[in-house]
Write a protein that binds this DNA or RNA. Structure first.
Lengths: 336, 336
DNA sequence: ACAAGATATGGAAGCGCTTCCAGATTGGCA
DNA sequence: TGCCAATCTGGAAGCGCTTCCATATCTTGT
């Protein structure tokens, strides 16, 4: 039926080991033999069976990547960077969608491990105990991404969501905003959102705003952002800046202001987080925190390759940093 | 090191075949044996190696899905539906991102086939000859999605992009719009966009608008939509409706109108295609074509399962239909 | 009680590859 | 010329599972 390595060996009048060596680029094969084998491979249209290779070599050439939502552009970009790097080394990425649910993540990790991937990429740095244990026990390289932690399962590449939120809050204060509200998205198990909120609290503490700050929680959707505006406007103290934990919330908030005829940033300024393409396109442009997610994915890919080749030990930690993009949705401030 | 099926067999004092039968739910195993084996599996923490199973059974329990852009919410939804159905049957989905490039698609198909997936899902119905040949030769079930065709590789599930665009155009005519322009996104190899344009042409022909229609082509981005507005406004004949091949273009167009102070739909009406969450959130709400993509993915999943179980022959074709969502970005028309 | 079918089970063969070891060939150097 | 090291090559063993066949055990009908 399908042509196997043994068929190629027979036709080229060599042993199966030799064909295998040619395929894997081992250099101790004479040029003449190599050419003959290559010719047979072409003539016969031979395509290796990676399942068999995986079993024999206990290397599958597969890396599993878990993201909380397929179809979210942020995570797509990370996967793109990761894939770009890994594909060059013949490694395919298998994506799992764990929908912000630790239980689901655990189930997917368990399933994926049965396929014997060479490595794992996880979004976020908080995972349940069983997940951590399974991954540790598997002994394969793990990279956690999109945030930072001092206690990674293995390696971590990302940026400090905490520091970014803190920096954004302080910058907004410098620009003259004094009465802020923070909208977090409903997500008990999203460490990035959690850290953003903590960063906001940290900045508030530094500014001496002990607990007078308003914190809302809404679904991470356009309508969640709209609902936040409603609540902010009702609030007794005149709030002048709405800090949103995601761009989606922020954009929803801007739309709601448009509907209500509320001037942004004149009456209410709005800032987001993620720098989606939408943030630059909307009117007014959305002030937000930007991270080069494709680069982050690439770094994750390189880390995994290093770990797989043994050239890199565990517990590496890389901070890819962040940039605050100031646009027209917040005030330019006194000095600008 | 890791515990294998043979280890379980030894401990349970049965043959390897029996353990395999227990694992795969074959019913000709006595209850007592079954219980004993199950107990050993739990005690030893045995996890099957799906790579070995794949080799032995020549069923890997993997389905490959190719989408043109990971991170695009439309395709994410399809994959979600597909995955939901397949996961229930222990099948994992491996995603490939072919970035609207037929060559890349061909390369990915070639790579993926080496992993011996049980089936394939492809986005779109146009693929190059080598891709079609490889897939046909592989003999596994193939489902093409997101459009319809009379010449599928195997099966197809989707809706007629052509008919949807035609219906939208005719409806807009009925609503009183008389001078339209169509913006296609730059994409020589995107059959969905191509068919939408053809559908527009078909409607124009029916309305007797022979070739007076303006057709633009811009990158599929917010700024591409903005650029289209610029060109439409410059056009000598006063165009009253901009039909966009995607919601992204349409939203970019609306933003540009906001910037220029152009009334939508008063001066220029705008319609899109895809019904992204953004379409309902923006002001004014965007008239667009809606398809239940999650359901489409689920149907694709069921089709593949049917094909895999042999209960369904090749060449099935399922039309999941579409809905036109009229919102405030186009005129309500005389009778509304 | 006994034949004939139904049901349960062990174990060998084999899936298509990698890898290791042993043997064959070559070349360099004294 | 002879010997050792370096280089190349064939083929067996084995990766962890499924599946088939042969055997053993249990039913049931008469």
């Amino acid at each position: 039926m399908t042509v196997t390595l043994a068929d190629v060996a027979k036709r080229a009048r060599v042993g199966t080991g030799t064909v295998s060596r040619v395929l894997n680029g081992a250099r101790n094969v004479s040029q003449s033999t190599r050419d003959r084998v290559q010719a047979c491979i072409l003539e016969m249209g031979y395509r290796p069976n990676l399942v068999a290779r995986g079993l024999a070599a206990s290397r599958t050439g597969m890396v599993c990547a878990l993201i909380p939502a397929i179809g979210a552009p942020q995570h797509g970009e990370v996967i793109q960077g990761l894939g770009d790097v890994l594909h060059e080394h013949g490694i395919q990425v298998m994506i799992g969608d764990c929908g912000y649910q630790p239980d689901r993540e655990e189930a997917i990790v368990a399933d994926f491990l049965e396929r014997r991937p060479d490595a794992f990429y996880l979004t976020g740095v908080v995972h349940n105990a069983k997940t951590r244990h399974m991954l540790r026990a598997s002994g394969i390289p793990i990279v956690e991404g999109a945030n930072l932690t001092d206690d990674p399962i293995d390696c971590v590449v990302g940026y400090s969501n905490h520091d970014a939120a803190r920096a954004l809050t302080l910058l907004m204060h410098k620009r003259g905003h004094r009465a802020m509200a923070f909208v977090a998205s409903t997500s008990e198990h999203n460490d990035r959102i959690g850290d953003r909120l903590k960063g906001y609290y940290a900045a508030c503490a530094e500014l001496g705003w002990d607990s007078r700050h308003l914190v809302l929680e809404n679904a991470n959707s356009f309508s969640g952002g709209a609902a936040a505006v409603e609540r902010v406007l009702r609030h007794p103290s005149q709030i002048d800046l709405l800090l949103c934990a995601t761009d989606v919330l922020a954009v929803g908030a801007i739309f709601e202001c448009q509907r209500r005829g509320i001037d942004v940033p004149g009456r209410l300024a709005i800032a987001g987080f993620d720098d989606l393409p939408l943030a630059a396109a909307i009117n007014p442009g959305l002030t937000t925190v930007s991270v080069d997610r494709i680069a982050m994915g690439r770094v994750a890919g390189h880390m995994l390759l290093q770990r797989l080749s043994g050239r890199q030990g565990a517990h590496a930690k890389i901070d890819v940093g962040f940039t605050i993009r100031e646009r027209a949705s917040t005030c330019a401030g006194p000095e600008a």
